[in-house]
């Protein structure tokens, strides 16, 4: 008889996430994992590898490319796919590309709706996925705090927050009709600090954008954004300055605020996070549109 120790909180969270991922693989015929290239996606990918070793994860990774992601993210994504050998599916909304949708010209709301939400719906319809694994966490935003780990979506990918299936113990209801789907959130119970600590402990590779270095930025709608390509309007680009900055979240470069920072290592990033007084999503411009903005976007099918 060996003495059983209580697992640390990170090991408990890790085991819970692995359980959830295996449940998806066992119960659905065509699952997919959303891969957004950010730190949460990096953790999810790492967990998927652990869940199915010595096999590779039995589902592809899907990236909805809005065509406005940081260039570095795209390079990082393609390199990871080669290094780890996972199946990568990339989708962009061709209609939006044809319309030349730009966050600078059309604003964050229109851009996010067409390139991200509509793009995602297209990708899901094309793939015909019955389970979509996402990296959302309940600590990120108030409306996420109420969402189930296995969250039901109707044929139009919409979420009905008032009509969610009860979710008890670690038993997940995976029953759906043809055309319906379930969004699965294996890291629901992780916090931002848990994610960072886990990345540190497990030595998980993340994009360089999270680490501070001298980058060219401009002031845009109250935040600093990176000069990532020449699609940024000329008059904005003229105002560019070099500053020591890094990013707390990664998304579309015109919509992702940089913060001034000297953190060049993981412990320094964690230190900065612990001592900071504003929450993670502040750098993301889309949430501020209105109170309950995220809840509305989620009902419409956004992750």
């Amino acid at each position: 008889m060996i003495t059983q120790e209580r697992l640390t909180h990170l090991k408990q969270l890790e085991a819970e996430s692995i359980h959830i991922l295996r449940e998806v693989a066992a119960e659905f015929s065509n699952p997919v994992m959303m891969y957004s290239v950010g730190k949460d996606s990096s953790v999810m990918l790492h967990l998927a590898i652990k869940a199915f070793a010595p096999s590779k994860p039995p589902f592809p990774m899907l990236h909805v490319d809005t065509k406005w992601k940081f260039n570095e993210m795209i390079k990082f994504r393609d390199q990871r796919a080669i290094d780890l050998g996972f199946d990568l599916v990339v989708h962009s909304n061709q209609k939006g590309i044809d319309m030349n949708i730009s966050p600078f010209e059309h604003g964050s709301k229109v851009h996010t709706d067409i390139m991200k939400t509509q793009g995602l719906k297209q990708a899901l319809n094309i793939g015909g996925y019955d389970a979509i694994i996402g990296g959302a966490r309940r600590d990120e935003e108030k409306s996420r705090a109420k969402e189930r780990i296995f969250s039901f979506r109707d044929k139009n990918h919409t979420w009905d927050p008032k009509n969610q299936r009860p979710e008890l113990w670690n038993i997940y209801n995976t029953a759906i009709q043809k055309g319906e789907s379930v969004r699965v959130f294996p890291i629901s119970n992780w916090t931002e600090l848990d994610i960072w600590q886990y990345i540190y402990l497990e030595n998980i590779t993340i994009p360089d954008l999270y680490f501070s270095k001298e980058r060219e930025v401009v002031e845009f709608e109250g935040t600093k954004i990176l000069v990532d390509d020449d699609r940024m309007p000329e008059e904005l680009r003229k105002t560019a300055k070099k500053e020591m900055v890094r990013f707390r979240t990664l998304g579309c470069y015109p919509l992702t605020g940089a913060i001034n920072s000297s953190a060049t290592t993981l412990p320094e990033i964690i230190k900065e996070m612990l001592l900071s007084t504003s929450s993670e999503r502040e750098g993301r411009l889309i949430d501020k549109d209105s109170i309950g903005a995220m809840e509305q976007k989620k009902k419409e099918g956004y992750f």
Binding site: H9, R138, D139, K142, S143, R144, A145, K146, P161, K162, Q164, S188, N189, T191, L193, I291, G292, E295, Q296
Partner: peptide, 23 residues
């Protein structure tokens, strides 16, 4: 700080299970 959904805020009540975290 805790009540999440817009409809709940308007009614002033919590209507579902919400999960919160601290350490």
């Amino acid at each position: 700080l805790v009540d999440g959904l817009q409809s709940e805020r308007e009614q002033g009540i919590t209507i579902d299970v919400a999960y919160r975290f601290f350490a």
